[in-house]
Amino acid sequence: MADTTPEALARLRELVSDDLERTNRIIIEQLDSHVEMIPTLGQHLLNSGGKRLRPILTLIAAKLFGYQGNDHALLAAVVEFIHTATLLHDDVVDKSNTRRGRATANSVWGNKAPVLVGDFLFSRSFQILVEHGDLRVLRIMADCCAIISEGEVMQLVASNDLATNEARYLDVVKHKTASLFASASQLGAVAAGRSDEEAAKLSEFGLKLGIAYQVVDDALDYASQSDELGKNVGDDFQEGKMTLPVIHAYAHAEGEEKEFWQKCLEEDEQPEGSFERAIALIRERGSLEYAMGKARQFAAEAKAALEGLPDTPEKQALANLADFSVDRSY
Protein backbone atom coordinates (compact mmCIF):
# COMPACT_ATOMS: atom_id res chain seq x y z
CA MET A 1 0.00 0.00 0.00
CA ALA A 2 1.27 3.45 -0.90
CA ASP A 3 2.33 5.73 1.93
CA THR A 4 1.36 9.34 1.32
CA THR A 5 2.00 10.69 4.81
CA PRO A 6 4.92 12.99 5.70
CA GLU A 7 6.55 9.89 7.17
CA ALA A 8 6.93 8.61 3.60
CA LEU A 9 9.53 11.31 3.02
CA ALA A 10 11.28 10.41 6.28
CA ARG A 11 11.41 6.74 5.28
CA LEU A 12 12.84 7.70 1.92
CA ARG A 13 15.60 9.62 3.66
CA GLU A 14 16.26 6.68 5.99
CA LEU A 15 16.98 4.40 3.03
CA VAL A 16 19.87 6.64 2.00
CA SER A 17 20.77 8.20 5.36
CA ASP A 18 24.46 7.25 5.21
CA ASP A 19 24.76 8.33 1.60
CA LEU A 20 22.98 11.61 2.34
CA GLU A 21 25.37 12.30 5.20
CA ARG A 22 28.27 11.68 2.82
CA THR A 23 26.67 14.04 0.30
CA ASN A 24 26.32 16.75 2.93
CA ARG A 25 30.01 16.41 3.81
CA ILE A 26 30.93 16.81 0.15
CA ILE A 27 28.71 19.89 -0.10
CA ILE A 28 30.47 21.52 2.85
CA GLU A 29 33.91 20.65 1.45
CA GLN A 30 33.10 21.96 -2.01
CA LEU A 31 31.60 25.18 -0.65
CA ASP A 32 35.00 26.10 0.73
CA SER A 33 36.47 29.30 -0.68
CA HIS A 34 38.88 31.97 0.48
CA VAL A 35 36.13 34.45 -0.42
CA GLU A 36 34.22 34.46 2.87
CA MET A 37 30.88 35.54 1.36
CA ILE A 38 30.62 32.32 -0.70
CA PRO A 39 30.46 29.70 2.10
CA THR A 40 28.51 32.09 4.34
CA LEU A 41 25.76 32.72 1.82
CA GLY A 42 25.79 29.16 0.51
CA GLN A 43 25.37 27.72 4.00
CA HIS A 44 22.50 30.14 4.66
CA LEU A 45 20.39 28.51 1.99
CA LEU A 46 21.67 24.94 2.31
CA ASN A 47 20.85 24.95 6.03
CA SER A 48 17.38 26.45 5.63
CA GLY A 49 15.43 23.20 5.97
CA GLY A 50 14.99 22.06 2.38
CA LYS A 51 13.73 18.55 1.70
CA ARG A 52 16.85 17.62 -0.35
CA LEU A 53 14.54 15.78 -2.75
CA ARG A 54 16.71 16.15 -5.81
CA PRO A 55 19.95 14.73 -4.35
CA ILE A 56 17.91 12.03 -2.61
CA LEU A 57 16.57 11.01 -6.02
CA THR A 58 20.13 10.49 -7.26
CA LEU A 59 21.05 8.44 -4.19
CA ILE A 60 17.90 6.30 -4.14
CA ALA A 61 18.07 5.61 -7.88
CA ALA A 62 21.63 4.31 -7.53
CA LYS A 63 20.70 2.22 -4.51
CA LEU A 64 17.71 0.78 -6.38
CA PHE A 65 20.25 -1.00 -8.59
CA GLY A 66 22.45 -2.12 -5.67
CA TYR A 67 25.23 0.40 -6.30
CA GLN A 68 28.02 0.14 -3.72
CA GLY A 69 30.42 2.91 -4.78
CA ASN A 70 30.74 6.57 -3.79
CA ASP A 71 30.21 8.44 -7.04
CA HIS A 72 26.48 8.82 -6.47
CA ALA A 73 27.13 10.98 -3.38
CA LEU A 74 29.38 13.27 -5.39
CA LEU A 75 26.78 13.57 -8.14
CA ALA A 76 24.05 14.20 -5.58
CA ALA A 77 26.12 17.11 -4.22
CA VAL A 78 26.33 18.55 -7.73
CA VAL A 79 22.56 18.26 -8.08
CA GLU A 80 22.06 20.17 -4.81
CA PHE A 81 24.55 22.86 -5.85
CA ILE A 82 22.70 23.44 -9.11
CA HIS A 83 19.35 23.51 -7.33
CA THR A 84 20.70 25.98 -4.76
CA ALA A 85 22.09 28.21 -7.50
CA THR A 86 18.69 28.34 -9.21
CA LEU A 87 17.01 29.24 -5.91
CA LEU A 88 19.44 32.10 -5.32
CA HIS A 89 18.74 33.47 -8.78
CA ASP A 90 14.97 32.86 -8.51
CA ASP A 91 14.67 34.80 -5.27
CA VAL A 92 16.41 37.80 -6.82
CA VAL A 93 14.26 37.71 -9.96
CA ASP A 94 11.06 37.24 -7.92
CA LYS A 95 12.12 39.75 -5.24
CA SER A 96 11.25 37.13 -2.60
CA ASN A 97 11.76 37.94 1.06
CA THR A 98 11.25 34.50 2.60
CA ARG A 99 11.93 30.91 1.66
CA ARG A 100 11.15 27.93 3.90
CA GLY A 101 10.19 30.35 6.63
CA ARG A 102 13.56 32.12 6.67
CA ALA A 103 14.79 35.35 5.15
CA THR A 104 16.08 34.89 1.60
CA ALA A 105 19.72 35.62 0.85
CA ASN A 106 18.77 38.66 -1.23
CA SER A 107 16.74 40.13 1.62
CA VAL A 108 19.81 39.80 3.89
CA TRP A 109 22.71 40.63 1.54
CA GLY A 110 20.99 42.44 -1.34
CA ASN A 111 20.75 41.24 -4.93
CA LYS A 112 24.34 41.26 -6.13
CA ALA A 113 25.87 38.69 -3.75
CA PRO A 114 23.24 35.93 -4.29
CA VAL A 115 23.53 36.22 -8.08
CA LEU A 116 27.32 35.97 -7.94
CA VAL A 117 27.35 33.13 -5.41
CA GLY A 118 24.79 31.32 -7.58
CA ASP A 119 27.23 31.69 -10.47
CA PHE A 120 29.97 30.24 -8.27
CA LEU A 121 27.83 27.20 -7.45
CA PHE A 122 27.16 26.56 -11.13
CA SER A 123 30.88 26.87 -11.88
CA ARG A 124 31.93 24.66 -8.97
CA SER A 125 29.43 22.03 -10.11
CA PHE A 126 31.13 21.73 -13.48
CA GLN A 127 34.59 21.72 -11.89
CA ILE A 128 33.44 18.66 -9.92
CA LEU A 129 31.95 17.01 -13.01
CA VAL A 130 35.08 17.57 -15.11
CA GLU A 131 37.21 16.06 -12.34
CA HIS A 132 34.77 13.16 -12.15
CA GLY A 133 35.53 12.58 -15.82
CA ASP A 134 32.39 10.82 -17.08
CA LEU A 135 31.29 12.55 -20.30
CA ARG A 136 27.86 10.93 -20.11
CA VAL A 137 27.27 12.58 -16.73
CA LEU A 138 28.73 15.87 -17.92
CA ARG A 139 26.39 15.88 -20.92
CA ILE A 140 23.33 15.19 -18.76
CA MET A 141 24.04 18.08 -16.41
CA ALA A 142 25.18 20.52 -19.11
CA ASP A 143 21.94 19.89 -21.00
CA CYS A 144 19.96 20.19 -17.78
CA CYS A 145 21.44 23.58 -16.88
CA ALA A 146 20.71 24.93 -20.36
CA ILE A 147 17.12 23.67 -20.13
CA ILE A 148 16.63 25.24 -16.69
CA SER A 149 17.92 28.58 -17.98
CA GLU A 150 15.51 28.40 -20.90
CA GLY A 151 12.71 27.70 -18.45
CA GLU A 152 13.58 30.77 -16.37
CA VAL A 153 13.37 32.97 -19.46
CA MET A 154 10.16 31.26 -20.60
CA GLN A 155 8.54 31.97 -17.23
CA LEU A 156 9.67 35.59 -17.36
CA VAL A 157 8.12 36.04 -20.80
CA ALA A 158 4.88 34.33 -19.72
CA SER A 159 4.47 36.44 -16.56
CA ASN A 160 1.54 38.88 -16.64
CA ASP A 161 0.44 37.37 -19.95
CA LEU A 162 -3.10 36.01 -19.82
CA ALA A 163 -2.61 34.53 -23.28
CA THR A 164 -0.51 31.85 -21.56
CA ASN A 165 -2.35 28.54 -21.90
CA GLU A 166 -1.95 25.21 -20.11
CA ALA A 167 0.42 23.77 -22.71
CA ARG A 168 2.74 26.77 -22.43
CA TYR A 169 2.60 26.60 -18.64
CA LEU A 170 3.51 22.91 -18.60
CA ASP A 171 6.38 23.59 -20.98
CA VAL A 172 7.76 26.13 -18.51
CA VAL A 173 7.39 23.62 -15.66
CA LYS A 174 9.16 20.88 -17.62
CA HIS A 175 12.08 23.18 -18.31
CA LYS A 176 12.37 25.14 -15.08
CA THR A 177 11.59 22.50 -12.46
CA ALA A 178 11.10 18.99 -13.78
CA SER A 179 14.31 18.86 -15.82
CA LEU A 180 16.44 18.76 -12.66
CA PHE A 181 14.20 16.08 -11.10
CA ALA A 182 14.69 14.07 -14.30
CA SER A 183 18.46 14.53 -14.42
CA ALA A 184 18.88 13.80 -10.71
CA SER A 185 17.05 10.49 -11.11
CA GLN A 186 18.89 9.61 -14.30
CA LEU A 187 22.29 10.25 -12.69
CA GLY A 188 21.65 7.55 -10.10
CA ALA A 189 21.15 4.94 -12.80
CA VAL A 190 24.20 6.17 -14.71
CA ALA A 191 26.36 6.06 -11.55
CA ALA A 192 25.26 2.45 -11.09
CA GLY A 193 26.39 1.63 -14.62
CA ARG A 194 22.92 0.78 -15.89
CA SER A 195 21.74 0.74 -19.48
CA ASP A 196 20.43 3.75 -21.39
CA GLU A 197 16.97 2.16 -21.27
CA GLU A 198 17.00 1.87 -17.49
CA ALA A 199 18.41 5.39 -17.12
CA ALA A 200 15.63 6.65 -19.39
CA LYS A 201 13.01 5.07 -17.13
CA LEU A 202 14.42 6.93 -14.14
CA SER A 203 14.59 10.14 -16.15
CA GLU A 204 10.93 9.76 -17.14
CA PHE A 205 10.01 9.09 -13.52
CA GLY A 206 11.83 12.21 -12.38
CA LEU A 207 10.31 14.37 -15.12
CA LYS A 208 6.73 13.38 -14.31
CA LEU A 209 7.39 13.62 -10.57
CA GLY A 210 8.82 17.11 -11.04
CA ILE A 211 5.80 18.27 -13.03
CA ALA A 212 3.40 16.90 -10.41
CA TYR A 213 5.42 18.50 -7.63
CA GLN A 214 5.45 21.96 -9.24
CA VAL A 215 1.75 21.89 -10.14
CA VAL A 216 0.98 21.15 -6.49
CA ASP A 217 3.33 23.93 -5.37
CA ASP A 218 1.47 26.36 -7.59
CA ALA A 219 -1.90 25.19 -6.28
CA LEU A 220 -0.73 25.52 -2.67
CA ASP A 221 -0.04 29.20 -3.27
CA TYR A 222 -3.83 29.62 -3.36
CA ALA A 223 -4.75 26.97 -0.81
CA SER A 224 -2.14 26.78 1.96
CA GLN A 225 -0.86 28.82 4.90
CA SER A 226 2.46 30.66 4.87
CA ASP A 227 3.76 28.79 7.92
CA GLU A 228 3.00 25.46 6.21
CA LEU A 229 4.27 26.37 2.76
CA GLY A 230 7.53 28.00 3.81
CA LYS A 231 6.91 31.10 1.70
CA ASN A 232 4.36 33.87 1.64
CA VAL A 233 1.16 32.61 0.06
CA GLY A 234 0.04 34.95 -2.67
CA ASP A 235 3.57 35.58 -3.93
CA ASP A 236 2.78 34.01 -7.31
CA PHE A 237 -0.30 36.23 -7.67
CA GLN A 238 1.58 39.39 -6.74
CA GLU A 239 4.38 38.53 -9.18
CA GLY A 240 1.91 37.92 -12.00
CA LYS A 241 2.92 34.29 -12.49
CA MET A 242 0.66 32.37 -14.83
CA THR A 243 0.14 29.13 -12.92
CA LEU A 244 -2.42 26.43 -13.64
CA PRO A 245 -5.13 27.56 -11.15
CA VAL A 246 -5.08 31.06 -12.66
CA ILE A 247 -4.97 29.81 -16.24
CA HIS A 248 -7.96 27.54 -15.63
CA ALA A 249 -9.95 30.20 -13.75
CA TYR A 250 -9.34 32.81 -16.45
CA ALA A 251 -10.23 30.37 -19.23
CA HIS A 252 -13.64 29.84 -17.58
CA ALA A 253 -14.18 33.45 -16.52
CA GLU A 254 -16.87 35.69 -17.93
CA GLY A 255 -17.39 39.44 -18.12
CA GLU A 256 -16.31 41.20 -14.94
CA GLU A 257 -14.21 38.20 -13.87
CA LYS A 258 -12.03 38.52 -16.95
CA GLU A 259 -11.66 42.24 -16.29
CA PHE A 260 -10.53 41.45 -12.72
CA TRP A 261 -7.79 39.10 -13.93
CA GLN A 262 -6.70 41.54 -16.62
CA LYS A 263 -6.36 44.43 -14.16
CA CYS A 264 -4.58 42.34 -11.51
CA LEU A 265 -2.18 40.45 -13.75
CA GLU A 266 -1.73 42.22 -17.06
CA GLU A 267 -2.13 45.80 -15.79
CA ASP A 268 -0.55 44.96 -12.41
CA GLU A 269 -3.27 46.74 -10.43
CA GLN A 270 -3.88 44.89 -7.17
CA PRO A 271 -5.80 46.97 -4.63
CA GLU A 272 -6.36 45.60 -1.13
CA GLY A 273 -8.44 42.43 -1.16
CA SER A 274 -7.40 41.38 -4.68
CA PHE A 275 -5.72 38.17 -3.56
CA GLU A 276 -8.75 37.13 -1.51
CA ARG A 277 -10.95 37.78 -4.55
CA ALA A 278 -8.60 35.71 -6.71
CA ILE A 279 -8.86 32.79 -4.28
CA ALA A 280 -12.65 33.05 -4.30
CA LEU A 281 -12.80 33.00 -8.11
CA ILE A 282 -10.37 30.10 -8.31
CA ARG A 283 -12.51 28.12 -5.89
CA GLU A 284 -15.74 29.02 -7.69
CA ARG A 285 -14.37 27.77 -10.98
CA GLY A 286 -13.03 24.53 -9.49
CA SER A 287 -9.53 25.50 -10.59
CA LEU A 288 -7.73 24.03 -7.58
CA GLU A 289 -9.46 20.69 -8.10
CA TYR A 290 -8.54 20.83 -11.78
CA ALA A 291 -4.88 21.54 -11.00
CA MET A 292 -4.71 18.77 -8.41
CA GLY A 293 -6.30 16.35 -10.87
CA LYS A 294 -3.54 17.16 -13.35
CA ALA A 295 -0.92 16.67 -10.65
CA ARG A 296 -2.33 13.24 -9.79
CA GLN A 297 -2.25 12.31 -13.47
CA PHE A 298 1.46 13.15 -13.69
CA ALA A 299 2.17 11.33 -10.41
CA ALA A 300 0.50 8.22 -11.84
CA GLU A 301 2.63 8.52 -14.98
CA ALA A 302 5.72 8.79 -12.79
CA LYS A 303 4.86 5.53 -11.04
CA ALA A 304 4.14 3.85 -14.38
CA ALA A 305 7.68 4.75 -15.51
CA LEU A 306 9.05 2.53 -12.73
CA GLU A 307 7.48 -0.60 -14.23
CA GLY A 308 10.05 -3.20 -15.17
CA LEU A 309 12.65 -1.97 -12.68
CA PRO A 310 13.79 -4.19 -9.77
CA ASP A 311 11.16 -4.66 -7.06
CA THR A 312 13.07 -3.26 -4.11
CA PRO A 313 12.27 -1.09 -1.08
CA GLU A 314 13.81 1.79 -3.02
CA LYS A 315 11.37 1.36 -5.90
CA GLN A 316 8.43 1.36 -3.46
CA ALA A 317 9.84 4.45 -1.76
CA LEU A 318 9.93 6.26 -5.10
CA ALA A 319 6.33 5.27 -5.81
CA ASN A 320 5.35 6.53 -2.34
CA LEU A 321 7.15 9.80 -3.07
CA ALA A 322 5.04 10.28 -6.19
CA ASP A 323 1.90 9.87 -4.08
CA PHE A 324 3.23 12.12 -1.34
CA SER A 325 4.01 14.85 -3.87
CA VAL A 326 0.30 15.37 -4.56
CA ASP A 327 -1.06 14.73 -1.05
CA ARG A 328 1.16 17.15 0.85
CA SER A 329 0.34 20.54 2.31
CA TYR A 330 3.88 21.97 2.14
Rank of each mutant, 00 (worst) to 15 (best):
T177H: 07
F122G: 04
T177M: 04
V137A: 09
V35D: 10
Q186S: 06
H89E: 06
L229S: 05
I140W: 15
E272T: 12
I56V: 15
R124F: 09
W261N: 10
E204P: 04
G255L: 02
T40Q: 14
G240V: 03
L202K: 10
E198A: 06
S123I: 12
A113Q: 15
K176E: 06
Q68P: 01
C144V: 03
G118T: 05
Q214N: 08
G286D: 00
T86E: 03
R194T: 11
K241F: 04
A322Q: 02
A189F: 09
S125M: 01
G273W: 10
A299E: 00
Q262Y: 12
R194G: 00
A163D: 11
L75F: 13
A322V: 06
W109R: 07
V79P: 06
G101E: 05
S183D: 04
F205R: 01
E29Q: 13
S159N: 09
F298P: 00
A103E: 13
D119Q: 04
I279L: 07
R22N: 08
D71N: 15
G151M: 03
A191I: 09
D323S: 10
W109S: 02
D171F: 07
L170I: 04
F120R: 09
D19R: 15
G255H: 00
E276H: 05
Q155E: 14
E239A: 14
E301L: 02
N70W: 11
G234E: 12
E239G: 03
K208H: 13
E266C: 04
P245L: 03
Q262L: 08
F260M: 13
L202F: 14
R102N: 14
E198L: 06
